[in-house]
Design a protein around this nucleic acid. Structure first.
Lengths: 150, 150
DNA sequence: AGAAATAGTGGGAAATTGTGGTAAATAGTG
DNA sequence: CACTATTTACCACAATTTCCCACTATTTCT
């Protein structure tokens, strides 16, 4: 569904132009309706088409609510979820709280990640990416990865 | 499928002429549709015919998303995967973020590697290759290699 | 060796996209 | 209730990108 990197500039009003290659799909699939929330592990935002988000929201809602880890995920994910709508020029408006969370000013990077898009500040993305590129050690590889041939 | 080395010049717009010997195959096999992504171990790009890439993408997508090593691979591989299309002159356009990653300016080297093509900056390719030729030590041979007869 | 065909390279024009501004509408406040 | 401030949507211009065409260089065949 979504893949690839894009460098996108936020304008002065906090608007973000969605890459053209995604626009037609988004309009056809969900009328340009999306949901943005935070990534709980990284200072980045996750942007889902509305139907995909609703699946996830249902699953998160269903987690046992007496479990602290579940409550944490519920509060963070659902608590930050915001409806977004493609405007006539193919842009979405990132609300200030989310902009703040991910340190988005002007230069941003959008990553396609299958069913969702990730939005990073360019500076932060580059530093995290370089860290991953350097550090090949220390991470436990799941067995599926051990044998994966590219 | 693909084999051999080719020296190819990127033009001023970042376009890359695919070697003639691959063109007919690419047009017949996938309409000239390809996907480029980064090599996570080297500053080089991997270029797959679209069907071959999609096999790999499916496998990578299926990895557990709460596992840091998986997320790393997903972000790096799928996050950088970009659709490419052969133009009327048998060229593809390498998008700026990927060009930047692999330090591609003008002189590049394309390596055939079975189901994929690798693209290196000439300078970097030469220095890495020479390093491999010098240093044969320190690498553990997997058992398959121990018994391989050339 | 010459000629013809094929491939490499570059440039230009049209269409598409990014960007910013303005006007209208809505919400908030005195 | 009215006025002001902020937001939202729409529109226009500028820059970029993409596609197509032409020229040059190289290779192959006669």
């Amino acid at each position: 569904m979504f893949r690839g990197v894009n460098n996108i500039n936020l304008d002065a009003k906090g608007r973000l132009a969605i890459p053209v290659k995604y626009r037609d799909f988004l309009l056809a699939h969900c009328n340009g309706e999306m949901v943005a929330t935070i990534d709980t592990d990284e200072r980045a935002l996750l942007i889902y088409p509305r139907p995909e988000w609703e699946d996830i929201e249902r699953k998160v809602q269903a987690l046992p609510s007496f479990n602290p880890a579940s409550r944490r995920v519920q509060r963070l994910l659902i608590g930050h979820a915001t409806d977004l709508q493609l405007d006539g020029s193919g842009r979405i408006l990132i609300p200030p709280p989310l902009r703040l969370y991910a340190n988005l000013d002007k230069k941003t990077v959008m990553l396609g990640q299958g069913n969702k898009l990730e939005l990073w500040s360019e500076e932060h993305w580059v530093s995290r990416r370089d860290a991953w590129l350097d550090d090949k050690s220390g991470l436990e590889l799941p067995p599926e990865l051990e044998t994966l041939s590219l």
